[in-house]
Amino acid sequence: MEQPLNPSDPPFASPEVADAFAEFPEAVRGPLLRLRALIFEVAEATPGVGALEEGLKWGQPSYATAETGAGSPVRLGCPKSGGGFGIYVHCATRIIPDFEALYPDFRFDGTRGVVFEEGDEPSPDALGMLIASALTYHLRKKHNGG
């Protein structure tokens, strides 16, 4: 069973999640595990998020704010067409369009996600903003009267 890269990262929530990471192509497994660690770091550092629930959604590792309901789930996976890897959110939200307005140089998969080529090392600062935005989506929407 695949383990997180850093022993201080949370253990996988289930063998199925571990297996999903083990099934990713070797070239993108490391970057996806680093994104997983970043999701947990951002969740811990962001007020109102609470504990994350790690599971599978559409066969992809998914991170939800089940404890608080504060946000929209974040998923990790590979694009349907071509290689690489990506971080995905619910496509009916403003999360990706708002992020794209701030970071237009990233590569986007419509309103679903941000995708990367094999060998890319995404900016943790920029992606931390994206993750925090997703994990607090419902809080912000409620606060803004939506």
Rank of each mutant, 00 (worst) to 15 (best):
D98L: 09
A64T: 06
G86S: 08
A101Y: 15
P11S: 06
P124W: 02
S123G: 13
E26K: 06
D109N: 10
E53N: 10
L56G: 00
P97L: 05
S133P: 05
F24R: 02
P122E: 05
E26L: 14
R107V: 14
S14T: 06
G82R: 02
E53K: 13
G69T: 06
I39E: 00
M1P: 13
D109E: 13
G48T: 04
E121V: 14
W58H: 11
L135K: 05
A64G: 10
S81Y: 13
W58A: 14
G50T: 06
P25M: 09
E53Y: 08
A70T: 01
G55E: 09
P25C: 12
E118V: 08
A27T: 15
E118G: 03
G48P: 00
L130K: 01
A37T: 10
A66E: 06
L76G: 01
S133D: 04
K141Y: 08
P11I: 14
C78P: 02
D120M: 09
L5I: 07
G145N: 06
E23D: 11
A92M: 14
G50M: 05
C91W: 08
P73H: 02
A45W: 11
L56T: 02
I96W: 03
E100C: 15
D9P: 13
D105N: 14
A126K: 10
F106K: 14
L139V: 11
F116M: 04
G128I: 08
A132I: 07
